[in-house]
């Protein structure tokens, strides 16, 4: 595989980024690194979702997979003392099993489009209810924490939150792994098959494509990636709750983020994560910091950022259906052709 020089430069910049942050913001290094780490972790999860989302397999249920990744890993650690080194693969297997359990009958019965989205919606709610129902173990809707191991930096316990520098490189590696999976899929013949069946399943079957199997393969891969992302996110946050990693809200954030960035291109979901994280963080800081607004609305102003965030996303999706990267690439292509 040849590495495009632009990507090599980008990668080098990402490696240098935490040191630059340390140099420029010595006082608030932790905060800025935290933002970037979150971006990278969500970028990997968005990329995992877009892996299937780009072929018209719109799932509103990927919050279930991130949730399973996080919860199974932490439960095994807290209650069975099983290291996440084994716990994470187990969690991935569980998530893939659920994906196949939902995917197989629905693909076989040709459940598509809105109906498929609704089905996955039911799945994420089912997983959330399971988490809440098992509150003795999971802490219910309040969430719980993985038991801290030693000083909070451990390979054995996959805990790295205490050192943001390490956490950054873990996040970078996780994100990079996600991008490599994307590239692998993008260059495979399976991508052609998925593009084909996304448009016309009958015609795809007529050229020998096993439609159900191709869909299951990409669904399983997508679920595995999101479960992995969810698990690492939990290990980084050192907290798991239905709202942060397992619910419908998480599903929606994934979909919005990926779509805003652009789901048809490699870096689309990553730009989507960058954009949504910056937007929500920027709005939050703006509203919390605004003296005038606080004087006018009091503490109610704190929820205003979420509202505006939602409105902006809706506008974005309506006016840029190809996402930020997709639109930019289209513009660039036209521009190049024109000149």
């Amino acid at each position: 595989m040849k590495l495009n020089p632009a990507y090599a430069v980008g990668l080098a910049a990402l490696v240098a980024l935490p040191f630059a942050i340390r140099a420029v913001f010595p006082g608030s290094e932790k905060y800025y690194l935290h933002i970037v780490i979150q971006m990278l972790l969500w970028a990997q999860i968005y990329t995992g979702w877009a892996l299937m989302g780009r072929f018209g397999l719109t799932s509103l249920g990927h919050g279930a997979f991130t949730g399973i990744g996080a919860y199974v890993t932490v439960m095994l650690w807290n209650f069975a003392g099983l290291t996440p080194l084994i716990g994470i693969p187990v969690a991935i297997v569980v998530a893939v099993a659920l994906a196949l359990l939902i995917g197989y009958p629905s693909f076989l019965q040709r459940i598509r489009g809105h109906y498929f989205a609704l089905l996955t919606l039911a799945m994420v709610e089912f997983v959330r209810l399971c988490i809440v129902g098992l509150r003795d173990f999971t802490g219910g809707s309040l969430g719980t924490q993985p038991a801290r191991y030693g000083d909070g930096i451990s390979f054995y316990a996959v805990q790295f939150e205490a050192d943001r520098m390490i956490a950054y490189f873990v996040a970078l590696a996780v994100w990079l792994a996600g991008i490599l999976v994307w590239v692998r899929v993008d260059r495979s013949m399976d991508r052609f098959a998925l593009e084909a069946l996304g448009q016309d399943e009958e015609a795809a079957a007529a050229v020998g494509i096993n439609v159900t199997r191709e869909k299951l393969k990409i669904t399983a891969l997508s679920a595995a990636m999101c479960a992995f992302g969810g698990a690492i996110f939990a290990q980084y946050q050192m907290y798991i709750g239905p709202d942060t990693i397992a619910g419908f809200g998480v599903s929606l954030n994934i979909v919005f983020g990926a779509v805003a960035g652009g789901i048809g291109v490699m870096l689309g979901p990553t730009i989507g994560a960058l954009f949504t994280q910056l937007l929500s963080e920027g709005l939050r800081m703006f509203f919390q910091g605004s003296v005038t607004l606080n004087a006018m609305f009091g503490s109610r102003v704190l929820s205003l950022d979420t509202l505006i965030y939602g409105v902006l996303l809706v506008l974005f999706i309506i006016h840029m259906p190809r996402g930020i990267v997709g639109t930019a690439m289209e513009y660039w292509r036209k521009h190049k052709r024109g000149s």
Partner: peptide
Amino acid sequence: ALAAWFGQNR
């Protein structure tokens, strides 16, 4: 090419 690949069952 897609048909060549999948049509002959890879």
